[in-house]
């Protein structure tokens, strides 16, 4: 079987500083790979680069997605190809209705696939169905995208979008951060329901807590822009017990950025 995602020697600069210093990673179809790391280690940078944010400059390396050169694609082309990133900080967009936004997104992709667009009624039905997965109330769909949503509601909205868009690759950037235990259960329930043999996931987290609910196939530790360790799910537990400092020199990142 060929990997769905293959990252080779990825170097990334942001604001004049090298943040990713040679990342190698392979993700097989259906595989769930957790990436753990302290604050500032480059987790969000990796997520953003994979989804095409142009403020991050790739200086070296390549990324193949489904055999295609991911880095040469526009963000929307990546989405059409099946990449989805749940933002660590979902963006509030006043004046753009959540439902309208998501229907526009889904239809944009359906057009590239030569499928018929969904009208408002059909889409509403689909959205209702999918929203149950994360217990997102109907009222949220009528509101502006993420505007005035609590932290937990924003994260549920991300997973709801993932459920509608049905990506091949989901990159979940600290989807657990800022969630209380009930919200964490709901969100991980949604994520687990979306696991399938056709969908791979990069589950990015600072804490081991999420991985009790979303059990990964593999765990890698990112520190200072490098993957310093890769193992099975036990690695997460070990990290939890010993802390990032245990990984040794250069692994400990700056703690608790706002």
């Amino acid at each position: 079987m060929k990997p769905l995602l293959s990252i080779k020697g990825l170097h990334v600069r942001v604001a004049g500083r090298e943040v990713l210093k040679g990342i190698d990673l392979e993700l097989m179809p259906g595989e769930v790979h957790a990436i753990m790391g302290p604050n500032g280690s480059g987790k969000s940078t990796l997520s953003q680069v994979l989804s095409g944010r142009d403020t991050y400059e790739v200086t070296k390396g390549e990324v193949l997605f489904d055999g295609k050169d991911l880095l040469s694609m526009q963000p929307e082309e990546r989405a059409h190809a099946g990449v989805f990133m749940a933002f660590q900080y979902p963006v509030e967009i006043p004046g753009v209705g959540n439902l309208h936004f998501l229907r526009t997104a889904l239809n944009a992709r359906r057009r590239t696939e030569g499928k018929e667009e969904l009208d408002a009624m059909d889409f509403l039905q689909l959205a209702r169905e999918k929203s149950k997965l994360v217990q997102l109330d109907q009222a949220f769909m009528q509101r502006s995208v993420n505007e005035g949503f609590s932290g937990g509601e924003k994260k549920r909205n991300e997973i709801f979008q993932m459920a509608v868009l049905e990506p091949k690759l989901a990159i979940l950037d600290e989807t657990d951060s800022g969630l209380d235990i009930d919200a964490l259960r709901i969100v991980s329930g949604g994520i687990n329901a979306l696991r399938s043999a056709e969908r791979s996931m990069l589950v990015i987290t600072h804490y081991q807590r999420l991985l009790e609910y979303v059990v990964p196939d593999k765990v890698s530790v990112l520190a200072n822009g490098r993957i310093v360790s890769t193992g099975g799910k036990e690695l997460a537990l070990e990290l939890e017990k010993k802390g990032y400092a245990w990984l040794g020199q250069g692994a400990g990142g700056k703690e608790a950025r706002p």
Binding site: S51, G52, R53, T55, Q74, P75, E76, R78, A79, H80, F84, M85, F87, P90, V91, I93, P94, G95, V96, F101, L102, T104, A105, L106, A108, R109, S144, V145, Q161, L165
Partner: peptide, 29 residues
């Protein structure tokens, strides 16, 4: 807002359509 544009595009909305959505949203008030 570049962040909002990126958010929309990351969901598959073209740059032009994302700009249109945000501009309409601005006028909507």
């Amino acid at each position: 807002d570049e962040q909002a544009l990126f958010y929309l595009r990351s969901r598959g909305i073209s740059r032009a359509e994302a700009e249109s959505l945000l501009t309409h949203a601005f006028a909507k008030e």
